[in-house]
Write a protein that binds this DNA or RNA. Structure first.
Ligand SMILES: NC(=O)c1ccc[n+]([C@@H]2O[C@H](COP(=O)([O-])OP(=O)(O)OC[C@H]3O[C@@H](n4cnc5c(N)ncnc54)[C@H](O)[C@@H]3O)[C@@H](O)[C@H]2O)c1
Ligand SMILES: NC(=O)c1ccc[n+]([C@@H]2O[C@H](COP(=O)([O-])OP(=O)(O)OC[C@H]3O[C@@H](n4cnc5c(N)ncnc54)[C@H](O)[C@@H]3O)[C@@H](O)[C@H]2O)c1
Lengths: 214, 214
DNA sequence: CCTATATTGTTAAAAAAATAACAACAGAGG
DNA sequence: CCTCTGTTGTTATTTTTTTAACAATATAGG
């Protein structure tokens, strides 16, 4: 729960969805050496109106200064803190198939404090391999590993048929969040957060925009 | 533009975002042999209230029947038509790296009428290879291929630095939609639709839900 | 054929989100 | 030190989205 001036406030989900985008663009500005930016300029960059941007940010604190704007570095760090990035996350991947191997090789996550510790699969031909420095272990060892290594995020990249089963195992072992790539709506206890990447849905939305009509 | 009773109506974006999920669950019900379903039951399955479900569907037509509910197969086909799935899409992939290769191997898309025709890369070691039946061509041939083969969707799976450049090429060649996996907000002419899969943003949202506070 | 039941399509109300307006204030320049 | 400019934080307004309510109607059972 988030608090502001002592009171608990609920952050609108619409706001939460935009934060990562703000953070990403601030990172790019920082790299370019931009020191300060106004809500109008920044809003234009991220594709959001200036008032909305200010309102969004003010849910978490007053990061700007009248007549000046926002200090890019300060805002970048503030948002990182808001999203909890400065507290490192330990992750495990389950399912080392086509997608799982791509995720193992992705560089973006590590830069932002997400640490992929190991991967699990059920296929004996994969178990024991090391891919891009990540060891593949037998799914049977999942629970013990999660408990021993302070893992709080599990990534699901298994076929849809086994996704719920894997999710159950992850929850039982004690992860706090699941990043799910299987085209399934997982049922988990409500203390665990799930973020779905239903890629095919994105493609269908694109199709609708291009060709949809009655 | 969508028309209903002769009048042009704008479909709320919130509705559009939910359609693919409805379609996916209808597919599963159909497979299970379920013949009819009420808005209450179906709403429970997809995680949406019954009135909202009815209102969503009624943007496109009256698919239900009082006292009976919705015929699953009929609704499934109607939604497919609404989203333009029955008109097949030809796609090309640009960027045959870790993620690109995973996408080539994905089976979900084909089943829904999305036909990946070929892939392009700039790396001469990849050009000429065939992966899962998909031939990898030189990026120099992109424009000609798209024009010759009635391609309407381009998938971008190249590094962020070259993504805008690839997008420009795709637009110039005449695609109608871009499915973008690079962590960049592409600038394209407004006749072209873009659907972003900014995976890292999903991970950050998960982090926020788990650890975010002030 | 008539009645009771189930469930829709549609209109109305409430809630959430986005946009607009503006007073407050920091900093620059005279 | 004062005034003008730029830009924030915040409150008010509008728009969009969600939820609720209910009349209309198809089906099933007697
Ligand atoms: N490949 C893509 O680009 C893509 C795109 C969209 C969605 N997806 C989804 O991602 C998931 C994975 O796709 P993929 O193409 O990598 O599939 P895949 O078949 O290549 O890989 C699945 C892996 O999961 C392992 N596995 C299966 N059951 C398991 C279990 N109970 N415990 C541990 N490991 C198990 C398999 O051994 C295999 O290595 C699927 O649900 C798919 O629908 C993939
Ligand atoms: N790997 C993942 O799981 C993952 C996750 C999230 C986001 N992404 C994003 O997806 C994109 C691709 O990631 P990846 O891991 O596959 O990278 P990668 O480096 O493995 O592959 C990129 C491919 O693009 C090709 N390429 C580069 N410039 C090109 C050009 N101008 N024209 C044609 N081809 C070109 C390269 O030769 C290479 O084969 C990146 O933008 C990355 O940020 C990847």
């Amino acid at each position: 729960m988030i608090h502001k001036e002592g009171k608990a406030v609920v952050i609108p989900t619409a706001v939460i969805k935009r934060l990562p985008k703000y953070h990403r663009h601030l990172g790019k500005l920082l790299k370019k050496g931009v020191e300060k930016i106004s809500s109008r300029e920044f809003g234009e960059i991220v594709g959001v109106s200036a008032p909305q941007l200010r309102q969004d940010l003010n849910h978490f604190g007053n990061f700007g200064q009248q007549g000046y704007g926002y200090n890019v570095e300060k805002l970048y760090n503030a948002l990182a803190k808001v999203m909890g990035i400065e507290k490192k996350s330990n992750m495990v991947l389950v399912g080392v198939g086509n997608l799982g191997q791509a995720l193992i090789s992705a560089t973006d996550f590590k830069r932002r404090g997400f640490n992929l510790c190991t991967a699990f699969d059920i296929n004996p031909r994969l178990v024991g391999m090391t891919i891009n420095g990540i060891k593949v272990r037998d799914i049977a060892n999942l629970e013990q590993y999660i408990k021993d290594n302070d893992i709080n995020i599990g990534i699901i990249a298994v076929p849809e048929e086994t996704a719920q089963d894997v999710a159950d195992k992850l929850v039982l072992a004690g992860v706090k969040g699941i990043w799910n790539f299987a085209p399934v709506d997982l049922k988990v206890s409500k203390e665990v957060s799930v973020e779905n990447e239903h890629l095919t849905e994105g493609l269908l939305r694109l199709s609708f925009k291009i060709k949809g009509e009655i």
